[in-house]
Amino acid sequence: MKINARIAYTGALFLVVLCGAGLMKPTPRTLKVPEGWPAPNKNLFSKNPLTEEGFQLGRKLFHDGNLSKDGYVSCASCHQQFAGFSTFDHDVSHGVNNTFTTRNAPTLANMAWHSAFHWDGGVNHIEVQAVSPITAHNEMGETLENVIAKLNADSSYPPLFKAAFGNETINSQRLLKALAQYTGSLVSANSKYDKVKRGEAIFSNVEQKGYEIFKAHCATCHKEPLFTDLTYRNNGLPLNRFNDVGRMAITGKKEDSLKFKVPTLRNIQVSYPYMHDGSIFSIPQVIDHYSGGIQKDQYTLDPVLKNGIAITQRQKYELMYFLFTLTDSTFLKDPAYGMPTY
């Protein structure tokens, strides 16, 4: 054989070895930051580079019932896309064996701007969030060991892990990082409100009036453009039947009693019921709570709610029509976020 052929052979061999060693890189994916928005949490993907393959793996895992003990409960069971990734029409969600959770499944949108997760902010990184629902007895009720065994036994997964992470090893870290790539990529920024902000649409008269009311009474906590300021506040709901004290259970501080994370209002039209325990069913009832239902004897009640929110019956509906403009039907129907076929 000639020298040239030998070089070609060596080159080809090198390529095979490189592929075998998993040095072929997955395709980078970028998180699209809507114009004018603050920068997302920089720690989110700092040790978990966002890739097309990682996102697609996370998307499949998110919709896979095998992550639960009985094979029926997937992440998507309680985080339904059409309900803004909350549980449609349920105050609390269902876990395995007909159990119930004790809180309303929060919507998932723009999680890349969050730095703490759950209603009480107890989870401090998006990657470790999923351990909680997977292992909780009243959610998916499974162990990470079993999940990994089931994924290894499902022939569709090892190639997906290889594509995302370089080899077929399935471990808890990769499982969690893939899920985080999916959930961290859920960006909702194409509602009528967003289109108005971009100059692509205009509010109706009623919506515009509602927006003014919103800015006057709601925007401190439900800060634009995320429609949450990501803080923990007591909004004057009574202590519920689960004795859920919220943030206090995490910090151990009594001044955090009954404080919960301010939820985003994006996709609020489809994510009823509302509040951390799903105790309020409709938007007008939520507004009634703020105008006349606040428990004013609670010493941790948020100062901005001390006097309630004075609002007329007419303004209540104007506000509601503004809130409807936060419905992002592109996001709610985007097949790229939906149940995959692979």
Binding site: N48, G122, H125, E127, S172, K177
Partner: peptide, 21 residues
Amino acid sequence: CSGAQEGALDPMNDMFWTWNT
């Protein structure tokens, strides 16, 4: 505060609190 870990710090080692990281 650094997300999902592996090896000795893998949450599978039953030394990890899920509800309050």
